[in-house]
Amino acid sequence: MAKHHVNLKVNGDEHDLLVEPRKTLLAVLRDTIGLTGTKEGCSTGDCGACTVIVDGEAVTSCMVLGVTASGKEITTIEGLAGDGELHPVQQAFINTGGYQCGFCTPGFIMASKALLDENPNRSEEEFRHALGGNICRCTGYTKILEAVLKAAEEIRTTA
């Protein structure tokens, strides 16, 4: 089966790749490009561990065929910190201890980042609902939510 030329812009870097159609964007990011910050949990769209931002929108990369991402701008967890400075949501996860094993963290951070970009003025209930596609088996979510709310507050006050 023919491989396809795929041009991905990941965290600002261009990648010209030859990709088998059956490879998911998640597999391309992790196995072909070597960006292993994005995690594979369920592989069925249910857990959110594989969340990346494609053209400004959070998506589960395990549900996307890599060939369909050609020409799109992708941000992964590796691309969030600019010039060595962490994104407010990354810093907030550290400050509140919003993780234990850390496996779900990249997905939570990318999903939160997209929500904060769209609208940081959400209530706790709204953030909780909007993060319903991300599963954590360790923390019980309290610290995660605290981190996201802290980041939202910081973004609101510095904006």
Binding site: G45, G48, A58, G133
Partner: peptide
């Protein structure tokens, strides 16, 4: 439907 990440697809 699903989550925001699913609804974006």
């Amino acid at each position: 439907i699903g989550s925001i990440q699913i609804r974006n697809l």
